[in-house]
Design a protein around this nucleic acid. Structure first.
Lengths: 191, 191
DNA sequence: TGTACATCAGTGAACGCGCGTTCACTGATGTAC
DNA sequence: TGTACATCAGTGAACGCGCGTTCACTGATGTAC
């Protein structure tokens, strides 16, 4: 039962979207091809009409997750500036999301282990830092401050998730919001 | 060829030490039992004289890695206070270590995915934060500041590793050292 | 203090499950005439 | 515009490799007498 070209394209998009979720939920190592295919409403056998192998699938899933994440941050910065973006990222809702939204927090340590994926991820992170830096007005040290805000957001989100979903975890998010917003102030500390 | 009790104890210690390395190098999901056993100088068959299963092995390896990490931080704080600890953690040498030293940076996103391991890890992180807080003098907001320093250190180390080992990566570490030391100043920003 | 026996750490072969990959097949699409 | 044929997305069974786990066996340890 061959499908039309348009349908084939749609199918591939569904598979990639499912892969983006799977990889953020379970990590690159434990992400499961069969689950991606069935989440996309297909059986596993048809997979190789769309991808060369497992590695390509999750690389593409990761790419889409990064693109989505970039878009979310750009939109937030456009709407309410860096503070709005920081508050959205370091929110209880984001921490508790069933599919972790930010691929860097969800996969950070795994990406850091692999030079290729790490380089790809760093490109994605750089774009997000640029977006934040623009949101900061783009002054001299804007990119430096944006970098530190991103580091704080990732680190705090990972800590908050380790701490579960109770008061201590909420507190981490609150402190990190304050701290990130403080870093956003021009030239308060950095050289 | 039964071994003496003392020897058996030594063997188990070697296995756990190898597991602590393996898990930090490859992550919990990809850590390999056979490699742990051969790193400990044994064949794989004898494994079950020491552990119930794979899960126990790496849980214990993780526990040891956390204990070691705790000790390193406590020693550094004892020797040169929080600044010394921050500089050691956010150093190029630490970033480039073949076996990533800090289990939280090496495994953070993986630990955050699993509630049990996450809780264990959070207990370990809490101890490290307490150590930093003591190093800060233990004032009112010392623990809050220590928490933010730890978040910054973990986040910046992960970012730096994504960025590779060149100038941009070095710069992240440098900025994060400055920022962490700034947070260490009493009541500069936090409520 | 020595002897006989049970214990059990460690070996290496074998097992079995999960999962990525392959393959013969189906039948709708799309193209050639 | 219709007909014949090639293409190929998707199915479901089967394959095979890696890896955790099991097992019969060995021989040194440690205990009972």
């Amino acid at each position: 039962m061959k499908k039309s070209k348009a349908e084939t394209g749609q199918t591939k998009l569904r598979i990639v979207a499912a892969a983006a979720d799977e990889v953020r939920r379970k990590g690159l190592a434990e992400a499961n091809m069969a689950e991606v295919m069935s989440a996309a409403g297909l059986t596993h056998g048809g997979f190789y009409r769309h991808f060369a192998n497992r590695e390509h699938l999750f690389a593409e899933g990761l790419r889409q997750a990064m693109a989505t994440s970039q878009k979310v941050m750009a939109d937030r910065v456009a709407v309410g500036g860096v503070p709005h973006s920081v508050k959205g990222y370091l929110s209880v809702a984001h921490r508790d999301e069933a599919v972790p939204r930010c691929p860097y927090a969800a996969l950070g340590s795994e990406l850091a282990r692999d030079p290729n994926l790490g380089a790809q991820a760093w490109a994605g992170v750089s774009a997000q830092i640029d977006t934040l830096a623009q949101g900061l007005g783009g002054g001299d040290d804007a990119r430096d401050r944006a970098t530190m805000i991103f580091a704080m957001m990732m680190g705090a989100m990972t800590l908050a998730r380790l701490a579960g979903d109770g008061g201590p975890s909420d507190r981490i998010l609150e402190l990190a919001r304050q701290e990130s917003l403080a870093i956003a102030q021009p030239s308060q500390r950095l050289t």
